[in-house]
Design a protein around this nucleic acid. Sequence first.
DNA 1: TACATTGTTAAACGATTATTAAAACGTCAG
DNA 2: CTGACGTTTTAATAATCGTTTAACAATGTA
Lengths: 107, 107
Amino acid sequence: MMKPAQVVKALSALAQPTRLAIFRLLVVSGADGLAAGEIAGKLKVSPANMSFHFKALSHAGLVVSRQEGRFIYYAANFAVMNGMVDYLTENCCGGHDEACKPNAKKC
Amino acid sequence: MMKPAQVVKALSALAQPTRLAIFRLLVVSGADGLAAGEIAGKLKVSPANMSFHFKALSHAGLVVSRQEGRFIYYAANFAVMNGMVDYLTENCCGGHDEACKPNAKKC
DNA sequence: TACATTGTTAAACGATTATTAAAACGTCAG
DNA sequence: CTGACGTTTTAATAATCGTTTAACAATGTA
C-alpha cells in the first residue's frame, strides 16, 4: 500500500517527456534493464541530463540500478509501478465498477 | 491509444498532492461525481485554488464537469485514466511478463 | 430589483524544475 | 601509473508551477 506522497513522487517522476520515455524503455526491457549510455543513445539525451533524470526516477523508486564493470544498468521497478496504478484505480466507483471499463491486461 | 504528450499531461495533472486527492475522491465517487464546493470542503482548499486545479485536471482530460443549478459537478474520466495506465504498462518485459506481477483488480 | 451563494478569473509572488556546460569521479586496459 | 571511457556532480540560467488576494460572473431567492 503506497502513501499519497510516494505516489505523487512517482507521478512527478513520470510527468516529463524524457523520463517517461526512459521508463517506457525500461518497462519493455524487463528485469535486466539497459545500460545508461544505451538509453542516452536511443533517446539522444546528454549524459548529464540522463543522470539528472535517472536520479529523479531512482528517488521515486521507479527504477533500480546495478553496476557492471564500467557500465551502470537501470531497470524498472515493477512493484512501485503497480503500486502507483493500484493507488489510482483503487475502490473505483465506490467498489461498484459499473462506469469503469475493466481492463484485463496489466503488467 | 494515447500519445506520449497526452500521457505526460495526465501524469503532470496528477503529480500534485491536492489534485491527486481531488482525483481519488472523484474515482471513488463514480460517474455522478461531486460538486466543486463539496470537494473543496472535504479537502480544505480555497475556491480559487480549487478552480486552478480543476482546470489542470480538465485540460488533461482526467475530469469532466457539468453545471446543475448553481453547482458544478466534476467527475473522473475513466477512459483517460485507463488509457494512461495502459500506456505505462503496455508490452511490459517485451510481452513476456515473467518479472511483472500480474494484478487482476483494475477499474 | 437587491442580495447571498457558487464558482471563475487575473495579477503577483516565491518555489520548483529542466537544461546546459564544465569539472570531477570511478573503472578498466595498456 | 597513465589515459580513455562512462557517469555523476556542480553551478547557472530560463521556464514553469502553486498559492494568495481581490475582483468578477452567473445562478437562485426574497
